[in-house]
Amino acid sequence: MPRYLLSVYGPAECTEFGAYPSQEAMLQAFADTGAFNERLQRDGHFVFADGLEPATTATTVDGQGAKPVFTDGPYLETKEYLGGFWVIEAADLDVALTLAAEGSKACRGTVEVRPFRTAESFRALLEP
């Protein structure tokens, strides 16, 4: 079954409650996201999901040269950062988009849906 990455983006500027305006809002979003994750598991869509520490905790590594170069901070400087993600299985994009809309509502964030490569598309890459 096709796999999709659902990435949640949130503002770089956070309160003490992460991307949420208050503790109450944060707890409610966590509860809703938890319920959504349970539904993903129950319906056989769930592969993996988790939330990330703020982008300020990221380290960027370039190991292509003779010696690896480490840089403090995320790879791209933007106003919004990846805050968490799901990896799901869905029959097609319509199903993935419906789930993404539910997930977006639950976690209070905008969700980007992106398909993973399939065996077939890898094969097409290897044998042009």
């Binding site: 097609d92 994009l93 319509d94 993935a96 849906v113 992106r114 398909p115 598309s121």
Partner: peptide, 15 residues
């Protein structure tokens, strides 16, 4: 359409 698996289907009555 191919990579994202956009379905070749008439949407459900809801949609």
């Amino acid at each position: 359409i191919k990579a994202a698996h956009i379905p070749y289907r008439v949407p459900s009555a809801d949609d």
